[in-house]
Design a protein around this nucleic acid. Structure first.
Length: 400
DNA sequence: CCTCCACAGGAAGCGCAGGAGT
DNA sequence: ACTCCTGCGCTTCCTGTGGAGG
């Protein structure tokens, strides 16, 4: 009997390099983004001649390649700037984890003063330090702020940096804001908006044909040659294009499909593996969504799930008796009962309605307005996914 | 036609936590 | 360290809405 890990190594796999289809992998080439790359290059190119680049706002849905594209151009700029000793420097900050003006500046500074630690210094000091860096070294500093909509005090951040720019004798600071939230722009102060959006760029979702090409390219590196059937790629591309045009979920589908094929000790990944992977990926998304819901909202969803699982709505629609359709009122009653039974407090019906609206936005439920045959004006609510699965997932969350 | 029902969803306000300003 | 402010989750109160039923 050998080492227990031997079987892992010896086991045959459809994967050549699993990393390449992992969600965290950054591809080396960016197909179908040539236009965006050259546009960004043009905007940033100004810094190589010592001028300030226009601020740039990049918008696009998740998985459209915003982040990788921007990072790629930044990295190219750094490289070129180092070789030609021109004064352009860049810093990339993900604002999801650094969600305030102070934290953003702090992370940016860490990039320019790697040996010093500014934690604990005042916001104004950190801010001055950044301006000073650009001024003293005559540097054109480019700050790329990913998920910029997550910054709580964006207005102050942008306004401050912009005003600082005017005070600089030499050097300059420009911003690249990246966001997948279209509403974000309208939320901004008009002055900040015009400042951040000196240049704008939209990344549109990939269509099925583009996704297919992307997947094909990735597969050739990630999987053993010939392991992924053409139909599997087409299937994954079609699913993802239909959903959102999101390259990340498309790649995720292939990763899971590969795992399924491995588990079945199959040498090839087929389209039915992709179909099964789709169900699993959906399950993961739902499960993650449920986990992050407020506990009271979980109870509301639980009420919907258990009512439709047992199919015991109090009143049924006259005539067709369609399965799984619930009345807003009876769900609230059930929710109250459950909340009381586990000794939780009960939210008001008004807020319950708010939760229902949110659940619909998340796609967990579907609602319609009551039409003929129903007394009063109410909403008919139906669960978006399998009741038993959601119920099971919720039970794990609530009663733990 | 009017009234009642069973809700939908806007507006205002409240208590609280956490951050900014001093 | 202190107050002040602000955003957030939520409640209370209220006005609409659209069909049932007398």
């Amino acid at each position: 009997m050998g080492n227990i890990f031997e079987s892992v190594i010896l086991k045959e796999s459809v994967f050549l390099d699993r990393n390449i289809v992992s969600p965290h992998y950054t591809p080396k080439n960016l197909p179908f983004r040539e236009k965006q790359i050259s546009d960004i290059t043009l905007v940033l190119g100004n810094t190589l001649k010592g001028g300030r680049a226009d601020n740039l706002f990049v918008y696009g849905k998740v998985g459209t390649g915003k982040t990788v594209t921007v990072r790629y151009v930044l990295q190219q700029l750094e490289e070129f700037s180092a070789q030609n000793s021109s004064g352009a420097e860049t810093a990339y900050v993900n604002c999801r984890t650094h969600n305030s003006k102070y934290k953003v500046l702090l992370i940016a500074l860490r990039r320019f003063y790697p040996d010093e630690n500014f934690i604990g210094f005042s916001s104004a000091f950190v801010y001055e330090k950044l301006l000073e860096y650009a001024n003293k070294n005559k540097k054109q500093v480019i700050l790329a702020l990913d998920e910029i909509d997550k910054v709580k005090d964006v207005d102050e951040l942008i306004y401050g940096l912009n005003r600082g720019n005017d005070e600089l004798k030499s050097g300059g600071i420009s911003l690249i804001g990246i966001s997948n939230n279209l509403l974000f722009k309208d939320r901004l102060d008009p002055r900040t908006k015009s400042s951040l959006c000196e240049k704008e760029m939209v990344f549109s979702p990939y269509n099925a044909e583009e996704l297919r090409a992307i997947l094909k390219d990735r597969c050739s590196k990630a999987f053993v040659e010939g392991a992924v059937e053409e139909s599997a790629i087409n299937c994954a591309a079609a699913f993802a294009a239909q959903e959102s045009g999101d390259a990340r979920t498309a790649v995720m589908l292939l990763l899971r499909a590969g795992e399924i094929a491995d588990k079945a000790e199959s040498k090839t990944v087929t389209d039915s593996d992709v179909r099964r992977a789709k169900i699993r990926v959906e399950g993961e998304i739902i499960f993650n969504m449920i986990k992050t819901l407020p506990s009271q909202q979980q109870l509301v969803l639980y009420a919907i799930a258990s009512l439709s699982a047992e199919n015991k709505g109090i009143r049924r629609i006259t005539g067709e008796q369609e399965k799984g359709i619930l009345f807003s009122g009876e769900i609230y009653e059930e929710y109250r009962r459950i909340a009381k039974s586990i000794g939780d407090n009960v939210i008001s019906s008004r807020w319950y309605r708010q939760y229902i609206n949110e659940l619909e936005i998340y796609g967990l439920i579907v609602t319609t307005h009551s039409g003929k045959g129903i007394r009063g004006s109410t909403r008919l609510i139906k669960l978006g996914f399998d009741a038993k699965k959601i119920k099971a997932a919720l039970e794990a969350e609530i009663f733990s």
